[in-house]
Simulated scan of single mutants.
Amino acid sequence: MSEKVRYFEDVADDERLETGSYLVTEAEILDFASQYDPQPFHIDPEAAARGPFGRLAASGWHTLGIMMHLMVTHREGGMPGLASPGFEDLEWRRPVFAGDRLRVVSEVAEKRPSRTKPIGIVKFATRVLNQDDQAVLEIVTIGRYRRRASTGTGAEAGG
């Protein structure tokens, strides 16, 4: 993982991130859900067998955590260095089960300089895929990047 800070100008319009994979285990499904999402289909294998997924499924919030882990540990060239303002359009498409191998594909969807601050905003269309290349999660993630040549307002860069 790189600690280099990336600037808005470093993000290519056609940038694409594809991560390595992550194997989901039953132990971590149970551990995460026991602490943060203790619904029966996440924490009780017997109840889960009678539930909507037919077996124990990972919490969607757990899947988001795995996505973040993969994105941070596989991004080359550094991270934005500024806290994200949030995300848009979160959709859990399919359940995640123990034994699933997840990976992330993320592509620049929109890139614009701030009109009032020395930063740029980049939106990424991000998908978490399972071992069958089926999307289990889709989300628009948002990164805030410092501008390289800025006097503080962002206006001089077309903002």
Score class of each variant (00 low, 15 high):
21 S>V: 04
35 Q>F: 01
74 H>S: 13
131 Q>N: 14
79 M>F: 00
27 A>C: 02
20 G>L: 09
96 V>I: 11
34 S>D: 04
36 Y>E: 12
69 H>S: 11
130 N>M: 13
25 T>R: 04
16 R>H: 11
31 D>S: 14
106 S>R: 11
47 A>W: 08
107 E>S: 15
83 A>F: 07
64 L>K: 00
13 D>S: 14
52 P>H: 11
134 Q>P: 05
140 V>E: 08
133 D>A: 15
91 E>R: 15
87 F>S: 15
59 S>M: 00
132 D>E: 11
38 P>D: 10
57 A>T: 06
76 E>D: 15
111 K>E: 03
122 V>F: 02
141 T>W: 15
78 G>I: 02
25 T>D: 01
85 P>T: 05
63 T>L: 10
114 S>I: 08
153 T>W: 03
107 E>W: 06
89 D>Y: 02
112 R>F: 05
110 E>Q: 07
43 I>T: 13
101 R>Q: 14
123 K>H: 03
42 H>M: 02
120 G>V: 11
104 V>Q: 12
14 D>T: 03
32 F>A: 09
107 E>A: 15
102 L>I: 13
141 T>L: 15
138 E>I: 11
98 A>Q: 10
116 T>N: 12
13 D>P: 02
44 D>Y: 05
19 T>N: 11
42 H>D: 03
57 A>M: 01
94 R>W: 00
50 R>N: 10
71 M>A: 06
92 W>H: 09
73 T>R: 13
69 H>F: 00
118 P>Y: 02
32 F>V: 05
145 Y>W: 07
14 D>S: 08
94 R>H: 10
58 A>T: 04
51 G>L: 07
13 D>K: 11
30 L>A: 07
126 T>I: 04
57 A>Q: 05
52 P>E: 10
18 E>I: 00
111 K>W: 00
19 T>S: 13
150 S>W: 00
142 I>A: 15
40 P>A: 14
32 F>M: 03
146 R>S: 06
26 E>W: 03
71 M>N: 08
33 A>P: 01
135 A>I: 08
46 E>L: 12
127 R>T: 06
56 L>C: 09
16 R>P: 03
33 A>Q: 01
104 V>G: 12
79 M>L: 15
147 R>S: 01
108 V>A: 03
70 L>M: 01
104 V>K: 10
76 E>W: 00
102 L>A: 14
122 V>L: 07
33 A>R: 01
61 W>I: 02
120 G>H: 08
37 D>K: 07
111 K>T: 05
63 T>K: 08
138 E>S: 05
106 S>T: 04
128 V>N: 05
128 V>E: 00
137 L>G: 07
83 A>L: 10
13 D>H: 06
97 F>H: 14
66 I>F: 04
39 Q>I: 06
47 A>K: 14
121 I>Q: 02
11 V>E: 12
101 R>D: 09
86 G>Y: 13
42 H>N: 04
18 E>M: 10
76 E>R: 03
80 P>H: 07
35 Q>N: 07
93 R>G: 08
53 F>I: 09
130 N>G: 13
37 D>S: 13
39 Q>T: 06
122 V>A: 08
91 E>M: 12
53 F>D: 09
110 E>V: 08
137 L>Y: 00
67 M>I: 01
46 E>S: 12
126 T>W: 12
111 K>C: 14
148 R>A: 09
49 A>M: 12
134 Q>C: 12
53 F>P: 08
17 L>A: 13
